[in-house]
Design a protein around this nucleic acid. Structure first.
Lengths: 110, 110
DNA sequence: TTGACATATAAGTGAATACTTATATAATAG
DNA sequence: CTATTATATAAGTATTCACTTATATGTCAA
């Protein structure tokens, strides 16, 4: 009945647009207009996604002239990596057994 | 402007309740009522979370008498692990203070 | 100072989400 | 069969979300 989990980073990366932003920032830092070229949405919509990422702490920004340069702060993703890493043993071994993944019925149905 | 990302698994694990369900199933399989003891919500609410996890494919179930036994299908989490794993170098470099310029060597590739 | 540029915030909207209670289905016990 | 147990679905609701347009802020250039 306890609540030992937080929401933040996992929710931030739940959105595909925000994952794409992170992937772009992984290559190198970007000002907003440079990021904006990659997305089919308005600039305010993008800025709102950037705000989510900022509030979670997975990106940071600095001003450079009129631009805001966003860059990755990947340390916050370690929480995700650590959590999902605890499941690694479960998919290792199963993969080479039957290819991509077994059907939902694991009772020798195939 | 492309859309090479899907939503499914990342969104499924965005909710803390669903991550807790997976953590319970990681220990061993569970019928619904056994899972329900761990959560402060109604049984239908829990069943709806289980449905989300099922539809994404990260859990499966089989009937055993009146019970539905849920068990983990962790292969679907590999997508998350792989995605976030591409960021590992960034926090490793920063955590042990080897300096940013180690990260700077991934400007090319991918 | 004025105007253009770069980005952020405000306000509004429709859809999705996470819950609730009520009911349906499914298996077993009597 | 009927009643009980176990789980799922239906329907309703309040909140959150991802977007939009309009406007505000902040920087630079003329």
């Amino acid at each position: 009945m306890s609540e030992p989990y937080t929401n933040t980073v996992f929710q931030a990366i739940a959105d595909p647009t925000r994952r794409r932003i992170l992937d772009l920032l992984k290559k190198h830092e970007h000002p907003v207009n440079s990021l904006h070229e990659h997305f089919d949405m308005t600039q305010p919509a993008l800025s709102q996604h950037l705000r989510v990422l900022r509030e979670v702490g997975v990106v940071s920004r600095r001003r450079q002239g009129r631009q805001q340069i966003y860059c990755l702060n990947a340390v916050m993703l370690k929480e995700v990596y650590d959590w999902v890493g605890h499941y690694e043993q479960f998919w290792r071994g199963k993969l080479n057994a039957l290819g991509e993944y077994l059907d939902a019925t694991q009772d020798e149905a195939s």
